[in-house]
Simulated assay, not measured.
Amino acid sequence: MDLKQIKSLIKVVYQYRIDEIKIQIGETTIYIKNKISQLVEKNNNKEQYYSVSDSEEQFNEQNGYFTIRSPMIGTFYRRSNPNQDPFVKKGDNIKIGTKICIIEAMKLFNDIESEVSGKIVKIFVEDSTPVDYNQPLFLIKINN
């Protein structure tokens, strides 16, 4: 299961208020528990836990906010080179598909695009710093 499929599944669980779901594909098992806002992924007997903190819960889709998270481990860059302006700044209005940052992983530079249209409310990560998988990058106030 790829990251886009997992994100879509999480959105469905959240949208329809499903309390818990378990999916097993080959050696990978994914658990999503909505009530405690926690995603647990088991792969080759290793477990990874991803939680939404209490402060983030006040900024959820029901309240008109969306958190863009890192799809991978790597180094976060707000601009393509140090002499250029950042792709986006706090207060910018963005559309779906707008390039918002780059994450470098294993010498590959991956463009990260917005999944929603809205206004950037907060940037959680400093330029040129390491990020973990699923780490919050941007908080977006969704356009209605």
Rank of each mutant, 00 (worst) to 15 (best):
M1I: 14
M1V: 13
K4I: 10
K4L: 10
K7I: 05
I10F: 07
V12L: 09
V12C: 11
V13G: 10
Y14W: 09
Q15W: 09
Q15A: 11
Y16K: 12
I18R: 06
E20K: 14
E20V: 08
I21H: 03
I21F: 05
I21E: 11
K22R: 14
K22F: 14
I23G: 11
I23M: 13
I23L: 13
G26D: 15
T29L: 15
I30T: 08
I30V: 14
I32G: 02
K35A: 14
Q38I: 09
K42E: 14
N43D: 11
N45S: 13
N45C: 02
Q48H: 04
Q48P: 07
Y50D: 06
V52S: 04
S53K: 03
D54E: 04
S55M: 06
S55I: 10
Q58D: 11
F59A: 01
N60A: 06
E61Y: 06
Q62Y: 12
G64A: 13
I68Y: 10
I68L: 12
R69V: 03
R69G: 04
R69Y: 07
R69W: 05
M72T: 09
M72K: 12
M72S: 14
M72G: 10
M72F: 04
I73H: 08
I73C: 11
T75N: 12
R78L: 07
R79F: 05
R79W: 01
S80G: 05
N81A: 10
N83D: 14
F87W: 09
G91T: 01
G91K: 08
D92E: 04
N93V: 05
N93G: 03
I94T: 14
K95D: 11
G97C: 07
G97M: 12
G97I: 06
G97P: 10
G97K: 09
I100G: 06
I100V: 15
I100H: 07
C101L: 08
C101W: 08
C101G: 10
I103A: 08
I103K: 01
E104T: 15
E104Y: 12
E104R: 02
K107L: 12
K107I: 06
L108R: 06
L108N: 07
D111W: 01
I112Y: 06
I112K: 08
I112H: 10
E115R: 02
E115V: 00
V116A: 03
K119V: 04
K119N: 08
I120V: 15
I120A: 13
I120S: 12
I123H: 00
F124L: 04
V125Y: 00
V125T: 04
V125C: 01
V125G: 01
D127Y: 05
T129D: 00
T129R: 00
P130W: 03
P130L: 01
P130T: 03
V131C: 04
D132K: 04
D132Q: 05
D132R: 02
Y133C: 02
N134R: 00
N134K: 08
Q135L: 06
Q135R: 00
Q135A: 02
F138L: 00
F138V: 04
F138W: 09
I142E: 03
N143M: 07
